[in-house]
């Protein structure tokens, strides 16, 4: 129908902005949600994910503007494109949410996560873990005669890879922060 010869993305409120055909393939998206820093706001965001059955792969939250009472929640989630669109729309409905950004589609984002890895062992294993840590640019932040804690910053994949290598070398504990992410290049401060 000729009436539908509307160029894609011609309006900001139109469904034409959505990809033409939804697939059933699950996608991983990193969302940045700028919220009012007030009690209960995080609970409302998490409750939305729990109540509507959406996934949370990781979540970080911290105040980013003390004077403006703003916090940034970074959520890594997954779902079909339709579910991702719903998640963003549902987040946008929340009264205390100022902005929702999908860093996966808005541009290229830097994604970083910090992990602490406790590796216990002695002798050759201990030395091997130290060598690998150097390759991964992990720092030793605690050491005893039979353990190290390594600190490493990187993409979630890099942290996964490091954990995998450390496992046979005595990995006993991991603490990870979840992803923090910003769009590359100049742009709105909130992105």
């Amino acid at each position: 129908m000729s009436a539908l010869n509307i160029k894609q993305g011609s309006t900001s409120h139109s469904a034409y902005n959505l990809r033409a055909s939804y697939t059933e393939t699950s996608e991983r998206h990193t969302l940045a949600v700028i919220v009012v820093n007030a009690p209960g706001v995080l609970a409302r965001v998490i409750g939305l994910f729990a109540g509507r059955g959406y996934n949370i792969e990781s979540l970080t939250v911290a105040e980013i503007d003390h004077a403006g009472h703003r916090s940034r929640i970074t959520i890594v989630t997954s779902g079909t494109p339709q579910v991702i669109e719903q998640i963003k729309a549902q987040l946008g409905r929340i009264v205390a949410v100022h902005e929702v950004h999908d860093l996966t589609v808005e541009g290229r984002a830097v994604e970083r996560e910090l992990g602490l890895f406790k590796v216990e062992g002695t002798g050759e294993q201990r030395i091997e873990s130290l060598r690998l840590a150097e390759i991964f640019r992990a720092r030793v932040v605690d050491s005893t005669l039979n353990s190290f804690i390594y600190e490493m910053t990187g993409t979630p994949d890099k942290l996964d890879a490091f954990a995998e290598l450390m496992r046979p070398l005595g990995l006993s504990n991991i603490a990870r922060t979840g992803v923090a992410a910003l769009l590359r290049g100049p742009g709105a401060a909130s992105k």
Partner: peptide
């Protein structure tokens, strides 16, 4: 409510 659009039925134009 933006979340009502394409929630259940995928539409050709959402306003």
């Amino acid at each position: 409510d933006p979340s009502s659009i394409n929630k259940v039925i995928h539409v050709d134009i959402g306003i």
